[in-house]
């Protein structure tokens, strides 16, 4: 489940960075700073996902749990910010 989630998140963020963000930026140039922040968060989350995928192959549950908690913190913050900034413009 953990690896499936990592792959799913990676694909989702790749779609946003490659399709959604450029198209929104074209229609709403004022979003430039927001998109830059979201892209930086995508890069940070990609690093966390990579670290988690490496940890899953090691036997220590404690370190995996810490990595999952860190991912939850970062991702929750990222999703909240993205919804707050983009959804009013998509609706």
């Amino acid at each position: 489940n953990c690896l499936t989630l990592c792959r799913g998140l990676h694909i989702h963020h790749t779609f946003e960075s490659g399709g959604l963000f450029p198209s929104m930026l074209e229609r709403h140039p004022e979003l430039a700073a927001t998109i830059t922040t979201l892209e930086a968060e995508h890069a940070k989350i990609a690093g966390l996902l990579e670290a988690l995928q490496t940890l899953v192959s090691t036997p220590s549950t404690t370190s995996v749990l810490a990595a999952v908690d860190e991912l939850i913190t970062e991702l929750t913050q990222h999703l909240d910010y993205e919804e707050e900034q983009l959804i009013p413009l998509l609706d």
């Binding site: 989630l5 998140l9 749990l65 999952v68 999703l79 919804e83 609706d91």
Partner: peptide
Amino acid sequence: GSFGAALRLIHGAFRRELALVRREVASS
């Protein structure tokens, strides 16, 4: 309209899945 709702749905699914993964890791 529907695109915003779709994004929220996708995000909701990731939030739920991640909480599930956390429970699985914590109980393993």
